[in-house]
Design a protein around this nucleic acid. Structure first.
Lengths: 208, 208
DNA sequence: AGCTGTATCAGCCAAAAGGTGGAGAGACCA
DNA sequence: TGGTCTCTCCACCTTTTGGCTGATACAGCT
């Protein structure tokens, strides 16, 4: 059994430290490098040539996690990338997988789940937290929940706090049409009010 | 010099582990207990009687951090509570300080900052991360825009998409009172509708 | 040619939200 | 003690939003 080398990418010192401590308890996993930003991540991945990169999506400044994943796939395509983040935003999941992530863990994952993900990743298995998997599953099963371009446009304006009247003016459509679109959006998002739709959109769909 | 005993409260195993590893490097600080929820926090604080409680505000389920702070102040008033959380939301800061928190750190704080906060807390000093301090400072300059603790609480629930009726039920107040609070919140945030208030709160205040 | 999905609009009604003005109770402080 | 702040509540009224049903038009696909 060979040792699995890992590079950690997270702008929070505490989280890196915690991962290091947890992974350190496992004989077959060794943390060989750390990075606090997307830029550093590229550098560290080059230098340490790890088997696995564990990466947060939200980096305070500079390059974000998604961008870092894309570049890592180009510069060091053999490394398995596992996303390790706080929120299970639909948009982030899709984007991360699209960018080439092998796994998607949430920060409240149990240590065993993290170990399993790291071990699985080097074997080409993709591991994700249960809530993440269920979201992906739901999206595949329910194409009904995908917003049409027009609906997405409207939702985007909605999250800026516009009234139905304003939405109509902005999009050059009648208030009646705005209401129709809204009803569809609510149904697709699984909410009943505009307030909940805004909250859902900004948080879950990564709109801001 | 006596050793400072600390209890950690965070629903993320990784974060607890990280704090433990970091604090463990300091000879005068010892982690004596951990908790993954508000309920566990009360229990751990009773049992271990620590000098300091380091606590996240966002706990997955059950009691939230603010509520836990309030109860801790009642059950074990001598312990200093330091909030250790991800976002610097105005509303959360106000509510946490109001509930009796001694310090307010962000998770991207440097280890030295954390050590200093723990040491300061036992001496009755309140320590907060620079971004947090600047927010408070800004609020002091514009007293008209400061949300009262109750308003902050309401706004926090508002960003979850609740209706006036639901807000009333949740806070044990009438719908009339909810409307009064909302009117004040709108005025302070400089918006006219609940939709705009939510958008402003989530984006500008970093709430989620 | 028919089906499906998208985008547009209407009218009606009920529910929710917002605006205005007023008011009492308790805390805190000068 | 008087002033200020906060939290609570009420009534009345207007505006906005949401639920429902139904309709037309166009594009793409089979």
């Amino acid at each position: 059994m060979t040792t699995i080398s890992v590079v950690l990418v997270d702008d929070h010192t505490v989280v890196r430290s915690g991962l290091k401590a947890l992974l350190g308890t496992q004989g077959d996993i060794a943390v060989v490098g750390e990075a606090a930003s997307g830029e550093e991540a590229l550098e560290a991945a080059q230098r340490h040539a790890p088997d696995v990169v564990l990466m947060d999506l939200a980096m305070g400044t500079g390059m974000d996690g998604i961008e870092a994943i894309k570049r890592l796939r180009q510069s060091t395509p053999k490394q398995a990338i596992i996303v390790f983040t706080t929120y299970d935003s639909d948009a982030d999941i899709v984007r991360a997988v699209d960018a080439g992530a092998m796994g998607y863990l949430l920060k409240d994952a149990a240590p065993e789940e993290i170990f399993a993900a790291v071990r699985g990743a080097v074997q080409g298995k993709s591991v994700m937290s249960a809530p993440v998997a269920s979201r992906l599953f739901q999206q595949l099963r329910n194409p009904d929940e995908i917003l049409t371009p027009r609906e997405a446009e409207l939702l985007s304006l909605l999250t800026q706090g516009l009234s139905n009247r304003d939405l109509g003016k902005r999009l050059f459509i009648s208030e009646a049409t705005v209401k129709t679109h809204l009803a569809h959006i609510y149904a697709k998002l699984g909410v009943e009010t505009r307030a909940a739709a805004i909250a859902t959109a900004i948080r879950r769909e990564g709109m801001r």
